[in-house]
């Protein structure tokens, strides 16, 4: 067996990868294409048009969509800011303070929102809010989102932090920098790509959430996913496809941004290690 490359190549694996990408992208592409359909019916192709995009912004349901979009974006913005701050503090506390007894407990607690199935979190949050008399509405959605965004913000920040040598901070400490100065002038600037990536992921996760929001939203308060779900139940309408395409583009844009931030971060930490 002189061809050593053959152990890295298996016949058909490239085809499976292609199939995999097809399954992943075809449904999204089809919805994008059909969102430009001029026809009233979702099945018949009636030529290209922007009428359903017009409908999203000016049609009969536009007020509902705009209110839902405002709720979604404002909740995602606030939830991502708060959860990123908490996650940054937790990541520094857990990576820069030596070994301590409750370290793995802390890590377990921070990753708890990922490990508990969403529907269980949804039920637990709903019964808890009702037990303490927290009125369901905008604020209950916001609090729930902050909680489940924390681990998603934490992971990229902690990963970046692990890649930064403590020598920078130790040098600053030797020069009598206070902890505030350490944070402001040394650690936070180095950590920025991780924090931005964490913020973006938390933002997308909040924007995406349906199950938990559906449980803890009060009557009359909708986010984009719950508004769309309400419409999809009775059949997929063309305006929903236009709205979905817009949301899809925003998600892809943000993820691409996070990806390039991550690459910058990776390049930095590579040069930190001198290679």
């Amino acid at each position: 067996m002189p061809d050593l490359n053959s152990v890295r190549r298996y016949p058909g694996f490239n085809l499976v990868t292609l199939l995999c990408l097809l399954i992943l992208y075809v449904p999204l592409l089809v919805v994008m294409v059909y969102s430009f359909n001029a026809s009233q019916s979702v099945t018949m192709w009636g030529g290209a048009s922007l009428r359903w995009y017009h409908d999203v912004f000016y049609g009969t349901e536009s007020a509902k969509f705009k209110a839902a979009a405002w709720n979604s974006v404002s909740i995602a913005t606030i939830a991502a800011i708060v959860s990123t701050c908490i996650a940054t503090a937790a990541a520094i506390g857990m990576n820069r303070s030596g070994d301590f007894k409750l370290r793995s407990f802390s890590f377990g607690l921070v990753s708890l929102p990922i490990m508990v199935p969403e529907i269980v979190t949804a039920v637990a949050t709903l019964v808890f809010f009702s037990a303490i008399g927290f009125i369901l509405g905008y604020n209950s959605i916001l609090v729930a989102h902050i909680v489940f965004c924390i681990p998603f913000a934490y992971l990229p920040i902690a990963a970046r932090l692990e890649g930064i040598e403590a020598t920078y901070e130790e040098a600053a400490q030797d020069l009598y920098a206070s902890h505030g100065q350490l944070l402001r002038y040394v650690l936070l600037p180095l950590l920025t790509p991780g924090i931005l990536a964490g913020y973006l992921l938390a933002f997308i996760i909040s924007l995406d959430d349906f199950i938990i929001t559906n449980f803890v939203k009060g009557a009359g308060v909708e986010t984009l996913p719950t508004a769309i779900f309400g419409s999809v139940k009775s059949g997929i309408k063309p305006n929903i496809m236009a709205l979905s395409t817009l949301m899809l583009m925003v998600s892809i844009l943000l993820v691409t941004l996070a990806y390039f931030l991550g690459r910058i971060g990776a390049r930095h930490s590579k040069s930190d290690k001198g290679g």
């Binding site: 303070s97 070994d99 607690l109 921070v110 019964v127 808890f128 924390i150």
Partner: peptide
């Protein structure tokens, strides 16, 4: 876990995550 540059502030850094997740997820469960 071996660098200790922020050891004196450990509690203040970790406490918010404990409080938020403990109060709004652990207790709810």
């Amino acid at each position: 876990g071996t660098s200790r540059t922020f050891q004196p502030m450990r509690l203040w850094l970790i406490a918010p995550s404990w409080l938020i997740i403990g109060f709004f997820l652990l207790i709810p469960v």
